Amino acid sequence: MRRRTGMLIAGAGVLVWGEWLNWRWSRALVANGEGSTEAVVVLGYRNPQPTANFINRWRVRAGIRSVAIDTRVIFSGGATSGGAAEARLMADYAKSVLEFDGAVLLEDQSATTWENITNVIPLLEDVDRIKIVSQPAHALKARAYLRRQRPDLAERLVRADDYRPGEWTLVKPLLALYGLWTLRGLKAGERKISRRRPRSRRSS
């Protein structure tokens, strides 16, 4: 009985740990954000099949539910294994299945997260708020890359709706382990939860 109780407690602890880490990552390198325009950048995942796979479908749904104001949704990701670009597959899913009729832009040349950010920067110059959507660790990595490439644009980063308590709960420990590995190159300051602060207005 004690052994079973101990296993249950340990299992619950692992789930709480995975939940906490993903929660923390979703709140790093973001600010309050002000303004009337925003861009939601949805990062693609390798997708050799002819339709959006499970992970890309979830990322699209998270991107659509992140839309708040006058928003453009940017799908970012190139072709995998000679198939269609991830960006195209995600956009098709958003329009044909989710019936999203908002503004959509495609960035279909990227093969890495660094390239995702490099290639979407021209599409972000004129917006007030930027949301990057993926699994929390991956989205944090992308925000850190934007901070390295364009710190002025990184000041416009705000939270996306890609973390929700209880969503993916059973796999969040695995996502947390993978996230710790993929974020190993980030500096300590790029992992900290951002202090909520008013953003200064850009000069007109």
Rank of each mutant, 00 (worst) to 15 (best):
R150H: 11
K141H: 13
P198E: 12
N53T: 02
A188N: 12
L183M: 10
S203D: 12
A62K: 13
L175G: 10
S200V: 09
A160S: 15
M90E: 04
D70T: 06
S36W: 02
G82C: 09
D101E: 13
Y163G: 04
G189T: 02
T37V: 03
L105E: 14
A39D: 07
D70G: 06
G82Q: 07
A87E: 09
S26V: 07
S81G: 07
S194F: 02
Q135K: 00
A28V: 08
Q149C: 00
G78S: 10
G83A: 10
I193F: 02
G44L: 09
R65G: 01
K131W: 04
E99M: 04
R197N: 07
A144F: 02
S200L: 14
D126G: 01
W58A: 09
R196Y: 08
L105Q: 13
L146G: 01
M90T: 06
A85N: 05
R195L: 14
P48E: 04
A31E: 12
A188H: 07
A84H: 07
L43R: 05
A62T: 07
L29F: 03
R61C: 03
R164G: 08
R184A: 12
L29I: 05
L170T: 10
A10F: 12
A85G: 03
W23V: 04
T80V: 14
T113C: 10
H138Q: 13
T71H: 08
S203F: 07
L89F: 04
V14Y: 03
V133K: 03
A84D: 15
L175N: 02
V73G: 07
W168K: 11
L123H: 15
D101A: 12
L105S: 13
K192V: 14
R184Q: 14
V133P: 00
L183D: 11
D162K: 07
L186S: 04
S36I: 09
V73K: 08
G189K: 05
V73Y: 10
R3I: 14
L177A: 15
R46T: 10
G185Y: 01
R196Q: 11
H138W: 01
G102D: 06
I64A: 10
K141W: 13
D162Q: 07
I69W: 02
S76A: 15
P165Y: 13
L43H: 06
A85H: 04
I9F: 06
A94N: 07
V127A: 04
P136I: 11
V104N: 00
E155L: 15
E19F: 02
R129M: 14
R72S: 11
R202W: 12
N56G: 07
A84K: 13
L177G: 13
K141L: 13
G18F: 09
A31G: 15
R159N: 06
F54E: 14
R184V: 11
T37Q: 05
S203I: 12
T182E: 15
R59S: 08
A10M: 09
W23C: 05
R191H: 11
Q135M: 07
F54K: 12
I130Y: 08
G82Y: 09
Y163F: 15
N32W: 05
